[in-house]
Design a protein around this nucleic acid. Structure first.
Length: 329
DNA sequence: GGCCACAAGTACAGTCGGGT
DNA sequence: ACCCGACTGTACTTGTGGCC
């Protein structure tokens, strides 16, 4: 499993900015992230607001390398990035890709980050991407049904050799989640390791979803499928692992409308660290939640100033223990 | 202990806008 | 122009805590 030191640094940066009162519990999540992580972002989904609202020019370092704007633009165009894309909001997964570091064997760091902001106490639904503990850029492209994210990331990383290794490198996923943003006495903010939401593999989750639809029909019609038929179905449904192919609208012969399946996921309270299942996470707190298996990393980072942070442990019903670094207002 | 009011959770549909 | 994902809004259902 790759190093999470960059995500830890991001968290420390966010806490420091809270301390300096540069941000508060109701600041935009993007402002919190962008203000704490300069120079390590190699894909940013909302380049428009970053520049317009948070004084963060995603392309600044690229432009610095060229004598003038048009030279930079020519280079970007050669990488498949049009002028129109520079400061747009692409609405793709993820919100942010962090820079991967090279090791002698391959890569480390380079995590993916997705933000979820909700007025109520439930985590905003996952619209198109089922949450997982890790994904490669290749998988990201499949989810998005295009290669915009990997194109921009690759341009930033200046990958020339070993692209396929870079492309299939498994990056850890983190979720920056706020709940109750409308009520500051209840607000909770957490940077959460993706494994918290992945208790069974996505492929299995999709297969079981369709199986459950079939079973619901069995019950509704009170017609039983045989065990053999169900087993056969299960093995067929195991093919359905490509989210993009499921959710794209379907051209059906002779039909004048195109059915469009939307795979959305809503977080069960047991999988929501901000729910009553986890009283260790109080209102008005900012948390970093990561698996116990990363504890050795924490010890390595112990020299970093942690004096304002409380350290506790929560137990996920299915995934075991998670360490929580916590700042409470 | 049961009822009620409100909060939390669930399940959708509708809208908007970016990318191709 | 078309395709599709993110975001928004809301109605309905379930859970909970206070009160009689």
């Amino acid at each position: 499993m790759s190093d999470i030191s960059d995500i830890f640094e991001l968290f420390v940066g966010i806490i420091n900015n809270f301390h300096r009162a540069e941000i508060s519990l109701d600041s935009p999540l993007e402002k919190m992230i962008l203000g704490a992580s300069t120079g390590k972002i190699v894909y940013l989904d909302n380049r428009r607001d970053a520049k317009g609202k948070y004084e963060f020019d995603f392309w600044r370092d690229i432009f610095k390398k060229f004598a003038n704007y048009s030279e930079a633009l020519d280079w970007l165009k050669s990488k498949g990035i049009s002028e129109k894309m520079l400061y747009s909001k692409s609405d793709q997964f993820p919100d942010i890709v962090f820079k991967a570091k090279r090791t002698n064997g391959g890569f480390t760091c380079g995590s993916l980050l997705e933000m979820k902001d909700a007025k109520g106490s439930a985590i905003a639904s996952f619209n198109s991407t089922l949450p997982t503990k890790s994904k490669s850029l290749k998988e990201v492209d499949i989810i998005n049904g295009g290669n915009l994210v990997s194109r921009i990331t690759a341009a930033f990383e200046e990958v020339i050799t070993d692209f396929s290794e870079f492309y299939s490198y498994q990056r850890r996923c983190f979720y920056f989640v706020r709940t109750n943003k409308a009520n500051l006495s209840k607000t909770k903010i957490s940077l959460i390791d993706g494994s918290f939401f992945e208790t069974i593999p996505t492929k299995e989750l999709i297969a079981k979803t369709f199986l459950s639809i079939i079973q619901a029909h069995q019950e509704a019609k009170s017609e039983k499928l045989s065990d053999d038929e169900l087993k056969h179905l299960e093995s067929i449904l195991a093919f359905l692992d490509n989210h993009n192919l499921i959710s794209s609208s379907k051209h059906i012969d002779k039909a004048s409308v195109k059915p469009r399946l939307r795979l959305m996921a809503e977080v069960h309270p047991e999988g929501n660290p901000h729910s009553r299942f986890y009283p260790e996470i109080p209102a008005r707190s900012v948390n970093f939640i990561f698996p116990e298996s990363d504890f050795s990393f924490l010890q390595k980072e112990a020299q970093i100033n942690l004096k304002n942070l409380k350290q506790t442990i929560i137990t996920h019903k299915r995934n075991g223990k998670y360490i929580v670094l916590q700042y409470v207002f």
